[in-house]
Design a protein around this nucleic acid. Structure first.
Lengths: 331, 331
DNA sequence: CTATTTTTGTTTTACGATAACTTTTTTTAT
DNA sequence: ATAAAAAAAGTTATCGTAAAACAAAAATAG
């Protein structure tokens, strides 16, 4: 059987409460008793059971991360960042994946909320219902959003508008006139990136043409190929693409272009998004927007911790990360 | 305040025990009472608290996955597989990362064991001490290893020997005589891959030359460049490399070769390992060994479940996955 | 040298749910 | 009609820990 606080108490000849106080380093226990208890704890190889502790404290010491790990690399990279900072704390990391099925999302969040499996939740790139989120608040479960913004909730974000603006403008400055946009079909990111794209066009007096916007669902490699075909069909003059749907899709685009005998960057220039690991391994190396995903993950964890600890000023904090254009060879 | 079983009991006019039995669908409760309780549960939006339940049941319904998510893509991909199957069960996934610091490993495992945070553990690519693992067994915490093998514990493995054999033999059949090996510096994988490499050489009457073996610590892109330099220094005649340290390192090798003006595959042929996403996006596309990592993850979870459920025959089961050589352009 | 603190523990209760036991009610058998 | 059996629901104890309330001994004050 496993060693409990009672066993220690019996061995030392004190009550369980005393042992508990020693463990929690209460000043009410004499050093002599502490030493005796500590010695017994070591000898009997006692470790506190977190379930018992959780029950009485109303705290799990768990952090939940909810995301669709099958939709993109973003969530995985963010988790790495979260884990990096979490390791320095007594918290544990529970992973919940929606598998890209958005219908599950609410169920999943409800489950997390009502089963009280975590003290805080980081929600990555998911659009959650405001009412449900308010429930979290009411029940005292901390929430931080990563990438998606919900009113009155703390968020870690990327400046997508500026990112798209930078990329598009860079293409314009490279004398490109017919700039396609490949972008996701949902979420705030997509809207913002579209917005930045439009802004750059308008600033430079280029008329927005909705035919040049191709929306994408999976952010997959294959989506890149589809995008190429669809865009070429609509515009023979296409001379550049900003692939706001991520580097993987951009690489798919490049690959398909190569097969068609289209030269990149001479015929069509392309800019990706994220700067994933492989972006500088392609030929030509992909010019892209760098998004510091892991750092954003770390930050979101730190922010969550503040909310859990009850820092008022953190409860509506919005932390924004700025984009960086990584210039390589694809433009 | 949150709704507990007592609130339901009071509302319906029964005792908490009755409510509990309804929740657990005990046959001892009349349908009429069940209906009334169920109705109240819905009305009051009651959800069982898993901590209370865990305490009395001695079961957490959590699965822990321990790995170094910073060393390679393997662990991340495996987690995806694990999560895929886990979602069909009532279990939750807790992630523990060693951050590649092996000293932490034992501490981490001890913590998992003694805090009883999980009913079962999947250990990925980590060499754990047999004695510590025996403690898990003694304490009734199920363990499954993925990729690393420990006597008397269930394991999901890849046939590394055959994989290395296949790759090396393919190079030999391509008339390559001086075949380098890039391989990790620790773990059973590395040994097995070295073994398969030697076997292929010996079968075809090529003498093993330890100078052609380059060991690597990080499995990183940069390691590939280092490997190229080191191998070329030792052998001018190098005409092929089997990069058993993974595709990323192989791509690093290719990249460095390109810079040096070495043609792949004409001057040096290369075969990677894993078949990660990007292996077919490089130029030339990388010939590699496909390892069904996600499937191995799923399988390891299924196996763990069997062990948790007490299936005797699963307790020492070793499941092996067979390699597949994916022929592309780098040989 | 008594009265008051301070120090050091102990008792008691609680967290939320469940399992084992008991009691009450209903049904069935004789 | 009454005992025995079965069904339904209620009681109590428990999981491991911690916090609040309480108690005794030791130390300090006046």
């Amino acid at each position: 059987m496993r060693v409990t606080i009672k066993d220690i108490a019996k061995k030392v000849g004190v009550t369980p409460a005393t042992v508990s106080m020693v463990i929690n380093n209460s000043p009410k226990i004499s050093q002599e008793t502490k030493d005796r208890v500590l010695k017994a704890i070591k000898e009997m190889n006692y470790h506190p059971n977190y379930i018992g502790r959780s029950l009485v404290k109303g705290k799990t010491n768990n952090i939940a991360v909810v995301a669709s790990f099958f939709a993109s690399l973003f969530a995985l990279e963010a988790v790495r960042g979260i884990e990096f900072n979490l390791r320095k704390t007594p918290y544990n990391l529970i992973l919940y994946s929606t598998k890209g099925m958005d219908e599950n999302e609410d169920d999943l969040l409800e489950r997390i909320l009502y089963e009280r499996r975590a003290d805080g939740v980081i929600i990555i790139s998911l659009k959650a219902k405001k009412e449900l989120m308010d429930e979290f608040k009411k029940e005292g479960v901390a929430v931080v959003f990563l990438e998606e913004l919900i009113e009155d909730f703390p968020t870690v974000k990327f400046n997508n508008i500026k990112a798209a603006f930078l990329a598009t403008e860079y293409l314009i400055k490279n004398k490109r006139k017919n700039i396609g946009l490949i972008v996701g079909n949902k979420g705030m990111n997509a809207e913002e990136r579209l917005h930045g794209y439009k802004e750059a066009l308008s600033k430079h007096g280029i008329e927005f043409n909705s035919e040049l916007v191709h929306t994408v669902v999976d952010y997959s490699f294959e989506d890149g190929e589809k995008a190429l075909n669809s865009l070429l069909e609509k515009s023979k003059k296409l001379d550049a693409v900003f692939c706001a749907a991520g580097d993987i899709t951009a690489i798919g685009f490049m690959d398909a272009a190569k097969e068609k005998g289209i030269n990149i960057p001479d015929d069509i220039a392309i800019i990706g998004f994220d700067d994933v690991y492989i972006a500088n391994l392609t030929t030509p190396a992909l010019t892209t927007i760098r998004q510091p995903i892991a750092k954003m993950g770390m930050q979101s964890f730190d922010l969550l911790l503040e909310v859990i600890e009850g820092k008022e000023e953190s409860e509506k904090k919005i932390i924004s990360f700025e984009p960086e254009l990584i210039i390589r060879e694809s433009v």
